[in-house]
Computed example of a mutant assay.
Amino acid sequence: MAAAAALGLGLVLAAGLVVALLAGVLVAAGRGARPDDTPAATLVAARQHAAVAAVLALAGGVVVALLLVSQGDGLGPVRLAGVPGLPAALGPLAGGLVALAVLAAGERTWPRPVGTVRTASLRRRTVAELAARRGRLLGGTTALGLACLAVFALTADATGRAVPALITSEAVAQGYGGGASGPYPGAPYALPLGAGLLAVAVVAGVVLHLVARRPAVAGTREEDDLALRRTSARSVLGVAQLASGGTVGVVLLVAGAALLRSGWLLGGWAAVALGLAVGLVSLGAAATACIPRPAPAPGAAPAGPRAGAQR
């Protein structure tokens, strides 16, 4: 227990350090970018800020995920003797949480034009409007992952790391009376992985709320600000989908392999097929989130409800 606590504390501190460093870079970039107070200049600076935030978030998430995956059973001299491979299994989810934290920092550090800031639209956006199909995909992936983890926890053997072999009359006739196959994601893995899936979904929802409720980027038209919000939402949901979908896909593949070795052919092949489908869909969703959408060309701001000028 002491080793597990030390490992957890060390990982939290390391992840926090990564987030703090990348957030500092975003703050410096936001303060350093002081575009002219024109629609074109403001929009270009805002798009660049969104791109930098997305790149830094992905980089930070990958670093943390690789750190955990490369350590296998633990970090340095600290080992989790009872749950081998758990830090590696949690790597993608931890990386996703770090990336989401960096994206949240990006939402608070948009560049502001120099001089007197022009008015901006007061129209509020909703999380449902911004999330759309990607939000439903993340919710479905999370629910599927939790359901599968519950099944695996209930069907594992007493160790929680293997699945009992299927005992047939032919096996009994040949002298085989038991056995198990692993690794298998029983309760020691299912509980922390389930908590990680829920954490990613909740944090993604919180960041989406920031995207929907933040003040409009000063100096941009209403349609340009909406495009920026949708870009931010795609980044948030792409990161969350990659972390959650990748984890669920790998868990299903590992469980399917163990089931096949134990003689549970139907369940094994179903898990493998589902794991491949979830992994490929999640990878595709994350990849398309990185493709920029065509945005309206800068121009004169349309008439509409406006907030007062700020400095």
Rank of each mutant, 00 (worst) to 15 (best):
L146Y: 12
S262K: 11
G238D: 01
L208R: 00
R124F: 02
G72W: 04
T42A: 09
L210G: 06
V19T: 13
G74N: 11
G76Q: 05
A54P: 07
L86I: 04
R230E: 15
A45F: 03
G135E: 02
T42M: 08
A33W: 04
L266I: 13
A128Q: 09
L166S: 14
V200N: 03
V55I: 07
L208K: 00
P192N: 09
A297N: 03
A255L: 10
V251S: 14
P192T: 12
L149R: 08
A233W: 00
A303Y: 12
A173M: 11
A195F: 13
R293S: 08
E170R: 14
P92L: 00
G85S: 14
S232C: 07
G82H: 11
A28E: 11
T116V: 14
P35L: 07
A162G: 03
Y184R: 11
V236C: 01
T247F: 06
L280N: 04
L283D: 12
Y176G: 08
G24F: 10
V254H: 13
T159S: 15
P111R: 06
P292H: 05
P302I: 03
V217W: 03
V254K: 09
R311L: 15
V19E: 10
G299K: 02
G249D: 05
V12Q: 15
G24K: 10
A41G: 00
T109Q: 14
A287Q: 11
L144A: 11
A273E: 05
R293I: 05
Q174N: 15
G76S: 06
A57V: 03
Q241C: 11
A309S: 01
A23L: 06
L208M: 08
T119R: 02
V19C: 05
D73S: 07
S121F: 05
L7N: 15
D36V: 12
G16S: 10
G279R: 05
V236T: 05
L22T: 09
P215H: 03
D37G: 00
G194H: 08
T168Y: 07
P296V: 04
A50H: 04
V102G: 00
A240F: 01
G96S: 01
L66V: 15
G284N: 07
P35Y: 03
H209L: 07
G177Y: 15
A187Q: 13
V117M: 06
G186A: 14
A156L: 13
P298T: 02
A270C: 09
V207P: 00
L7G: 13
V250N: 14
G299T: 01
A227G: 02
L130G: 08
V25E: 13
A201I: 01
G24N: 10
V62K: 04
A285C: 08
L58D: 06
A190Q: 11
R47N: 08
A277W: 05
L253D: 11
L7K: 12
A46K: 01
A218H: 02
A156W: 06
G135R: 00
Q241D: 02
E107T: 08
R79S: 12
V127E: 09
S169H: 12
T38N: 02
G186T: 11
L237C: 03
L198E: 09
V163S: 10
P215Q: 06
V278I: 11
A143F: 08
